[in-house]
């Protein structure tokens, strides 16, 4: 006879943690072992360096002051790319492989395996950003003058709001399918308004308003100031306060959107269709 008690069940929080760790391990394994360490990391790492070279070369002649900004901002943009192409595509990728249904069938909270999967990408992204900074130092002679507490705080808030965004994208990817195309479209939009190649203060006025409604510009400003010009937390308050708002609100919005879209998709019945 089948006994329901034969598998000991854990509390929800234990389950969430367990699911997050298991997903994280699975993803890391898939990336490093299955894809091969050498080629994959090399390719991933090289990604933003060419963009940085392009922008740096354009600025160097007449606006050398902007080169430092570009180096830090483009390094940070690796995390944006991660949020868009990686976190944003997680669900769709699982669907493509036919494993999404099984993730949904599990009783673990959605956010736990999503976070676990997202963490796996963070490692590669960090390496990639570091290579970017190094390239900035070697190729363009950029000098850093960091204020550590401000830098750490800016970074944490920046990442939190990015993940929130990533979860929102991920949910929309689920409904639109082809999340890769969605990511491409969004990335062209985000690079225009996110203060990656230039500070958003240089945008024409009519583009500055939508840019200020996104967390990215504040994050970039805070990160560049804190790392290049030794700006302290108090000095960065105008950027850090709105950024903290985004960092708190976006993950919540992400989870809500996700729940809403999941219901919608289940109603529509194409969870496992591609």
């Amino acid at each position: 006879m089948w006994q329901s008690a034969s598998v000991s069940s854990t509390s929800t929080s234990r389950l969430a943690l367990q699911a997050a760790i298991a997903s994280w391990k699975a993803k890391i394994y898939e990336h490093i072992v299955v894809n091969g360490l050498g080629g994959y990391v090399l390719v991933w790492v090289a990604f933003p360096v060419f963009t940085l070279a392009s922008i740096g070369l354009i600025y160097r002649a007449h606006r050398p002051g902007l080169v430092g900004y570009a180096v830090v901002a483009i390094a940070a943009s690796a995390f944006i790319t991660n949020a868009l192409y990686y976190v944003g595509q997680l669900l769709d990728e699982e669907r493509h492989r036919g494993t999404l249904v099984n993730l949904f069938l599990s009783p673990a909270p959605r956010l736990s395996w999503l976070t676990g999967l997202a963490f796996a990408g963070l490692f590669e992204t960090t390496v990639s950003a570091a290579v970017c900074l190094l390239f900035g130092v070697i190729a363009f002679g950029v000098r850093f003058d960091p204020d550590l507490p401000a830098l750490v705080l800016s970074f944490v808030l920046f990442i939190a709001s990015l993940w929130g965004l990533g979860f929102v994208f991920s949910a929309f990817g689920l409904i639109l399918k082809r999340s890769n195309d969605l990511a491409n479209l969004l990335s062209s939009f985000v690079f225009l308004l996110g203060g990656v190649y230039y500070p958003i203060s240089l945008l024409p006025a009519w583009l500055r308003y939508p840019a200020e409604a996104l967390p990215l510009g504040y994050g970039m400003q805070a990160l560049t100031q804190a790392s290049l010009h030794h700006a302290a937390i108090a000095q960065l308050a105008p950027q850090l306060i709105p950024l903290a708002g985004f960092a708190l609100a976006l993950p919540v919005i992400g989870v809500l959107t996700f729940g809403w879209i999941e219901r919608k998709v289940r109603r529509r019945g194409d969870l496992d269709l591609y």
């Binding site: 922008i55 606006r63 902007l66 062209s188 690079f191 225009l192 190649y197 230039y198 240089l202 945008l203």
Partner: peptide
């Protein structure tokens, strides 16, 4: 994006 970058570059 690129047009603004170029403007910023002077």
């Amino acid at each position: 994006t690129w047009r603004i970058t170029y403007s910023a570059s002077g």
